[in-house]
Design a protein around this nucleic acid. Structure first.
Lengths: 222, 222
DNA sequence: ATTATTATAGACCGCTCGTCTATAAATCAA
DNA sequence: TTGATTTATAGACGAGCGGTCTATAATAAT
């Protein structure tokens, strides 16, 4: 039976329980493939405007698979948000730790990468949380906390980074790092949105420039 | 026949050409009523997620009327944007001219009114342009310029206001008012979005505070 | 009067949505 | 080995969408 199992598995797939797909697939974790595609598609097109069929067609699985892994569309959306939060926090940690001697460079790296990403997808992919946020009024209540949590996670990570910069004397001792971090993410969401409207990196660059200028400035209005 | 005309008209309506509505309406300009409802509904729910039927039901007119006044849904959306731009620019002019001796107070008034408006609708109504902007990737190309134009109009109005404040010595002579105005609207879009996510006025207040702090600050980095 | 214009009324079609039921293979229990 | 269970894919289904269409009813023009 060991032999039989080996024969059954394709190059990419290991034999699995359940009804096998009609045609071989390029992945072996259907749920993960759906979440990955969901992140990309929902980041580009939002939640309510995207049909499940759209995601299914991209991944190449039938509808039944979707409803096997997810209770409903909301459940899927929530799990996509969770995946995105993990992905994004990991990205932030990597950027913020990239230059421990100059923590502010970590933020600059993040900004540069964000600009690169926006250009790569020609300003069609913004921020998943921003998309969901814009749709808040028509989303189920269950989305409220997960979305707010994401912003809080990012704020915490950035505040930490700024405090490190402050300890090194790179930003004014009088600066309130928590407030600065909140200010950054509030504005950054607008920068992504504006970049989509203008189809240009300029809003991102302009916001970053303004934020960094007042951050580095040693004098602050009381 | 003069008498007959007077008899025919209801309290609110004047006699008009064309087939009369089955039941009397509370408005006499159907197109305007559709645009007004469109502004409110699209500001709350976005463009692609809202069906024409939704707007028709709110206004109480049949589909035939919609397609009499608008070529298609895109045409409607574009005209709603145009209306919103006029409404919003008028609001800005009123606020910015409210205290000519202290132009910065005009911006503060705008911010206060925006917070009031967000609270009034319990953070369900944000910015129409922000909503459309978030949907850019799935909108027809025809939306691109009108949306960007709105942001430009607002930037021009704010830049003017800031220049007046600068002339009065209320903000630093070294400040670049055009850049400051751009910075404000970029970030403000994010503040509205964040307020929707958090269902709180705090993001708007925090962004406003940060923006005004660096604006008023007399010292600017190099 | 007759025709043209304006505007409302709502049926209809093709398409897509989210849900649901059926099917097929692997595994487990006896 | 065989039947029940679990896992996963397959696709049918009804509801609702946007947009078009024809029909209708009033005024205005000739």
């Amino acid at each position: 039976m060991m032999l039989r199992l080996i024969i059954k598995q394709t190059v990419m797939n290991t034999a699995k329980r359940g009804r096998p797909p009609k045609q071989a697939r390029s992945f072996d974790d259907t749920k993960d493939a759906l979440l990955l595609a969901g992140m990309a598609i929902l980041t580009e097109r939002g939640f309510n405007t995207v049909g499940i069929d759209h995601i299914l067609k991209r991944v190449g699985v039938p509808k039944g698979s979707f409803y096997h892994y997810f209770k409903n569309k909301d459940d899927f959306g929530l799990q996509v948000i969770q995946h995105y939060d993990q992905y994004f926090c990991a990205k932030l940690r990597r950027c913020f730790n990239s230059d421990p001697e100059h923590p502010v460079n970590g933020l600059k790296l993040f900004i540069d990468e964000a600009v690169e990403g926006m250009e790569k997808y020609r300003f069609t992919r913004g921020c998943l949380i921003g998309n969901f946020g814009q749709e808040m009024p028509i989303l189920s209540e269950t989305f409220k906390h997960p979305l707010a949590d994401c912003l809080q996670h990012w704020t915490d990570l950035l505040a930490d980074n700024l405090k490190q910069a402050q300890a090194l004397g790179h930003i004014a001792a009088s600066a309130n790092c928590d407030e600065q971090a909140e200010f950054f993410w509030i504005g950054w969401e607008g920068a992504i949105l504006s970049a989509k409207v203008m189809q240009s990196e300029l809003p991102m660059r302009k916001f970053a420039k303004g934020f960094l200028a007042q951050l580095i400035s040693t004098e602050h209005a009381h």
